[in-house]
Each structure stands twice: as C-alpha cells, then as structure tokens.
Amino acid sequence: MFQGCCNINSEVFLSLPCILGTSGVIEMVRLEEDPLVQEKLQSTIFP
C-alpha cells in the first residue's frame, strides 16, 4: 500500500521495489522525493 508516501492520502496499491526476507517484506525501497516525480505519480493515480 502506498498511502502516506509522496503526499498520497488515499489507499493506493502499487508494485514497488522492496527487500524480501523469509517471512515476507522486510523493507520498502523509498522513491525519490523529487517534486516532479510526485506530480507525475499523482497525475497518473488521480487523473
């Protein structure tokens, strides 16, 4: 779930890079906090 990242406050499920361990996801790889990346992501999710 991507809620709380990049100023997204809705429940959004995306395929994101992460680190997996024997018991599942250990850590989610954070996306760059670039304003242009955030703007593109939000315009794609909320057209």
Rank of each mutant, 00 (worst) to 15 (best):
L16V: 15
V29D: 01
S15G: 11
E33Y: 03
T22N: 13
Q3E: 12
S43Y: 00
I8E: 04
E27G: 07
S23K: 13
E27H: 15
I8W: 00
V12M: 05
S43L: 06
Q38F: 04
L14P: 01
S10F: 00
I26C: 07
P35S: 14
C18N: 10
C6S: 09
E32Q: 10
S43T: 09
Q38H: 01
I26F: 03
P47Y: 01
F46V: 00
I8T: 05
E32F: 08
K40Y: 11
L41Q: 04
M1Y: 08
I45P: 08
S23F: 15
P17H: 07
L41K: 04
D34W: 05
M28L: 14
E39N: 04
P47R: 02
P17Q: 09
F46A: 02
G4M: 03
M28Q: 14
I8A: 02
S23R: 14
G4K: 00
F13G: 05
C6W: 02
E32L: 12
R30G: 11
T22D: 15
N9V: 03
L20H: 08
F46Y: 06
L14H: 01
L36K: 11
E11Y: 06
V29G: 02
R30W: 09
C5I: 01
I19M: 12
R30D: 12
E27S: 13
E32I: 13
